[in-house]
Every structure is written in structure tokens, then in C-alpha cells.
Design a protein around this nucleic acid. Structure first.
Lengths: 202, 202
DNA sequence: GTCATAAAATGACCGTGGTCATATTGAGGA
DNA sequence: TCCTCAATATGACCACGGTCATTTTATGAC
């Protein structure tokens, strides 16, 4: 086979060049021709690596989720699960401050693929699994006392996460960072997930 | 000038004809030409009423949100706020069972406009305002005892709502209805919002 | 080195979304 | 009834995303 690494490298190269153009001119204003020209390849070649122009955004979203997963792995044994989640997400949320436009597009693309492709969409589902296993362990270790099924908890958290990102635009004018926004939302739902932490006595 | 009602009527007509086609063939497979042909108008006319093809989906989403708002208004004085919300949303969620594909697309379009247009997007923001006023009244009437700011509560609920819709696909295989899914999510976060209802003693 | 074969590149081509200059329509004034 | 003017309709046109038949290139067997 043709140098297999070469293939991945080219995909990465196209991705990075495209990203650069998106940063400069905005997603809609960049044509596929421009991207391929910048890469010194023919237009058709692009579609050997990304089936649609949108798929670059999806790829961006997926690599962010991968970062998130690594981050979760890293914080796995520190403190309460709530804090673990907050820490892991915080790293990722910082990206949003600098490239909010593109990050929002990527998030939407992720959601689109997750909802329309259903079981086919790998990345979000893997994130679910990983969070679930993290929370299950925490339950066993006695760090999490919750009456709810793990699956339901995970869905809740992910839901709040996505929506924080999307609705952040509405609050941007005020002096809240996106991290603060998410922290607030998490505080609320965590109270429902595990009242023990919050200082309640139930 | 020109019969103003006529204008709205035509927009509605285009909308309904388009919807019919989408139901039959799927959104992507329907061209703007087809829609205008079915309406007996020229292609260009379409774009006098909807700036983009996608905007039909947005319009669909917005009219769903309007229904939701009316529904909330209707249930305004019955029972606890949690139940009010559940009832109001239930009506809407039923649509998803029958037309899930199109409804998901509409939801995504709503989210896109809400996040990218920011303050410009009316409908979601109005929904926020309405829910907020409902919850504020409930607080005053002593039906809701929550330590959280109303805004934060609303964002949480809306977030869970949207995410339930989108991630429903993943659970569709199991025998849960979308209403049940949402009920579960709401149970969790409501516990955090107002532990009083849940039977806790805090 | 040569050949056979499969992977990957390519750009002419096509269909569709969206634009725009022009045509049509209808309301109101004389 | 006719004229004016703005609102609306229209379809030729264009640019871009995406396809595909064809060409180029890398690989391994001999």
C-alpha cells in the first residue's frame, strides 16, 4: 500500500490549512478550491479525505472530544468526580474563548452527526462510555452517592455541557466566561445528582 | 401595500407544500425548484420569502416553539412548576415520534441560529423569558423554593430539553419514548433545582 | 529493470442553491 | 381611464459543492 502514514499526514495537512483559512476568512467564505490550491493538490483530492466540506468541522469537533477524553483520563484520580469533570472540561472550554465562531460550528456539526447518525457516531458515544465508567468507579469507591442510573447522569451532564456552549453567545455580553457559565450549570444539576457533596443532609 | 395578508398566506403556503415534500422524500432530496413548481410560482419567488432553503426548517422550529409557548401559557396555573413544564413539553415531544427526522433537523437549525445569531434570535430567547417569568411567579407564590438564580435554572432546563431531543436517537432502539427520556432527565435536575418537591428535607 | 495491479490524484463536468437585472402587477392619484 | 411608483415575481445566470471516468503513481513479484 501507498505509504499509509503519508495518507494520514496529508489529511492532517489539508485539515490544518483549511483551519487556517477558516480563521482568517470565516468558514462560509472559504471555498474547497482555495483549500486545495493552498495545499498544492487538485480539487478532487480533497474529497478523498473529507466526504463533505462540513466534515472538516466534524473532524475538528472530534479531535476536541479526543482531547477531552485524554483530559478526563489524566484527572481520573483527583478529588470528587464533579471536580474531575470540571477540570477536564475547563481545558477544552478555553479554546472557545479564542475561536468561538469555529468552535460553535464544530459543536453543531458534532450534534448533527450524533443525532442523525445515531449509533454510527463514534466520538460522542465514546465520551458517554468513558464518563459512565468514570462515574461507576466513583460509585464503587464511595465517592459518589446517587440514586440515579449512571446513564441518566451522563446524559444530563453532556446535555448541560453542549447547551452551555451554544447558549453562551447570549451571555457573552456580560462579564461571564464560558467556564463560569458551565460551572454554574453544573452546580445546579450536581445538587440533583449527588446532594451529599453539596452539604445537604438527605 | 399589496394585500399584506396575501404575503403571509403565500409564505405559509410555500412552507406547507415544502413540508409535505420533505415528509415524502426527505429534506436533502427536495430541490427548491420542486417546491416552487408545486406552488405554481417561479424559483426566484421562493427566496423572497425564505432567504435560504434551510430557513424552512428554522421556520418549522420557530413555529414549534410558539406552540410550546402557548402550551406553557395554558398550563400556567396547574400544579407545581415542574409538572407545568412537563405537561407543556409533552405536547410538543409527541411530534417527534412521528416526524423525528425533520424535527431533529429543525431543532438543529434552531440551535444554530440561537448560537450564531446570538441576541438576534428571537424565539429561543422569548422562550427563556417566558419560562423565567413563570418560575419567578412560582417563587413568589411559594410553589418553588430554590437557591439558584432563575436564569440559571431556565438555561439548565432548556439545555436538558434540547439534548434529550438530539440524543434520543441513541436510545430509540430501547423501548423508551422521548417523553420518558425527558422525564428522567428532568427528575434529576429538578432534584437540584428544588429538593423540596422531591421529598428531601434540606 | 519491467510488468501488473491497486491506491490515490485529478479536473472536466453536473446539479443545485442563491443572485440579480428586468418584467409584472396592483394601488392610489389625477 | 390612464399614469406613476413601489412591491413583488421571475428565470437566466453564476459559483460552489460534490461526482466520476480517466490518469498517475507507488508497490511488490519476478
Amino acid at each position: 500500500m501507498l505509504r499509509e502514514s503519508r495518507k494520514k499526514e496529508l489529511k492532517e495537512h489539508i485539515f490544518l490549512q483549511a483551519l487556517q483559512l477558516f480563521y482568517d476568512k470565516g468558514y462560509e467564505q472559504v471555498t474547497v478550491q482555495e483549500i486545495t490550491a493552498k495545499c498544492g493538490i487538485g480539487k478532487g483530492t480533497f474529497f478523498n479525505y473529507f466526504a463533505k466540506k462540513e466534515d472538516i468541522l466534524l473532524y475538528l469537533g472530534e479531535s476536541q472530544i479526543e482531547l477531552l477524553q485524554q483530559s478526563i483520563e489524566k484527572h481520573r484520580n483527583i478529588g470528587h468526580p464533579k471536580e474531575q469533570i470540571m477540570h477536564a472540561l475547563n481545558d477544552l472550554l478555553l479554546h472557545f474563548s479564542s475561536h468561538s465562531e469555529l468552535m460553535k460550528l464544530a459543536t453543531i456539526e458534532i450534534m448533527k452527526s450524533a443525532s442523525l447518525a445515531g449509533k454510527e457516531s463514534k466520538s460522542v458515544q465514546q465520551l458517554h462510555l468513558q464518563l459512565a465508567s468514570m462515574l461507576d468507579r466513583a460509585k464503587q469507591d464511595g465517592k459518589l452517592h446517587s440514586r440515579w442510573e449512571t446513564d441518566v447522569i451522563v446524559t444530563t451532564i453532556v446535555g448541560v455541557y453542549f447547551h452551555t456552549i451554544l447558549s453562551w453567545a447570549l451571555l457573552e455580553a456580560q462579564h461571564t466566561t464560558i467556564s463560569e457559565s458551565f460551572r454554574k450549570q453544573l452546580d445546579v444539576v450536581w445538587e440533583g445528582i449527588d446532594p451529599y457533596i453539596g452539604g445537604g443532609d438527605k
